[in-house]
Design a binder for these strands. Structure first.
Lengths: 235, 235
DNA sequence: AGTCATCTTAACGATTTTTTGACGATTTTT
DNA sequence: AAAAATCGTCAAAAAATCGTTAAGATGACT
């Protein structure tokens, strides 16, 4: 029994959103339609869609802002749809983490194909299957709860900030392997971020202060000098 | 020392392939250019590129066939580039596993952004960011753990420095074969480094102090006088 | 407006790592 | 046999790395 994929459609023109919604439903998707950026953000966190179709021209805020907000804590696939055909817009959206950019007007079968492609990416991308990688990772007294977006120490919430959590979550996902500074930075701040690990250093200091007994001699996250960080393997 | 991403360009029109190649190189990619589908397939298996830019109009075979062949055993990102703007073509390519479809003519910055996006997709899958090599190499009581970036002696971390590790890792990769001083130096310090093996000598002394019982009579890394170093074969 | 938490950037120092110069033992070449 | 080159070793200088602190910058919420 296959569960239908949920698609969140963010589009202010009702004629278009209705049309897209119909097409998608006919193709076996569940759809949620919202008109504003704000609704979109609440829907994303409350309904956990499998994909977002995002129009850039929204009444209350720039679609790009929606994209950025979503990307702060999730990398679920976002297909941007816009009337703007300027290269600059495309580049910006893609570099902020959009998975595709379609210019209106577009054909329905192309839209569907691109949606399939975007969903396929997340499916094959993460070996464990999900965007927010569901489940838990545990090593020693440390637990990463991927559902709650929390890191627990002896069952207690370590109260990491969003970025701190993302770093730990990433390291936990590849526990036992060294992740280079560059890789972590790319993953968190996008492909055109500075390749300066300064920011990682202070984040790591803060993380360790929260999860390590003795930050000077870490028990969970080790630094491989000149290379990157590595999380202790699970047990 | 970051390793550049390799992009395989499959395109029969030389003017276009040259152009793309230039753009990519200027953006920090290594490029390989081929004209036919057959060449493309051999290059994919022999050179392991990080991404393929695939033109659909090839002299010897349909680009779609290339795509299908590649997808049989690999899901490395493929960006299709084509003059055909028919929806049917796009859908077909995307459904056969292409990661994106660009219609000629396209802007260079859009191409680059879409390449970044495609690479990003695979990166979240496997953090190959740096020194590709994965797994372990073992000979005698010595183990090179390529995931942890560590060299272990009887299970104990030998605590090599980055450069020391890189040298051992390189020798391990070609265990049994002599690597010339020049080659090792090139590999570590880039093509324009001094061709003076002084620096290798002191590194080797330090390495041996850490991994050999009797540095005077090495058990793992041998020096071929006048030529280079060689690591003992695995067992 | 103001508070609060977080994110970002700059600067500093302790430590580690890299590089360089020098010397002698040994081997190779002349 | 003498001269030259090769290689390992030591020590010291030079450079880089990383954790840490503190000071702005930003944004959310009251």
């Amino acid at each position: 029994m296959k569960i239908k994929d949920k698609v969140l459609i963010v589009e202010d023109e009702q004629s278009i959103s209705n049309f897209i919604s119909m097409i998608l439903q006919a193709s076996g998707f569940d759809t949620i339609v919202v008109r504003t950026g704000e609704e979109a953000l609440t829907m994303v966190s409350s309904h956990c869609p499998d994909l977002i179709i995002l129009d850039l021209g929204l009444p209350d805020m720039d679609g790009m802002e929606v994209l950025k907000s979503v990307r702060k804590w999730s990398n679920l696939p976002v297909v941007v749809v816009s009337a703007r055909n300027h290269e600059h817009d495309k580049v910006e959206a893609l570099d902020y983490g959009a998975d595709d950019y379609l210019v209106k007007p577009f054909g329905t079968s192309e839209l569907l194909a691109r949606i399939r492609t975007a969903i396929r990416h997340t499916r094959t991308a993460l070996p464990n299957g999900e965007i927010a990688q569901s489940g838990k990772f545990t090593t020693g007294e440390l637990t990463i709860d991927y559902d709650k977006h929390q890191v627990l120490l002896r069952g207690e919430n370590a109260r990491l900030t969003v970025n701190e959590y993302k770093i730990v979550a990433l390291l936990g996902k590849y526990a036992g392997k060294v992740l280079t500074y560059d890789f972590i930075i790319r993953e968190l701040w996008g492909p055109k971020a500075k390749t300066d690990n300064q920011i990682l250093r202070v984040n790591m200091a803060n993380i360790r202060r929260k999860i390590e007994k003795n930050p000077g001699q870490p028990e969970y996250i080790f630094t491989e000098v000149g290379v990157g960080y590595r999380m202790r393997e699970d047990d």
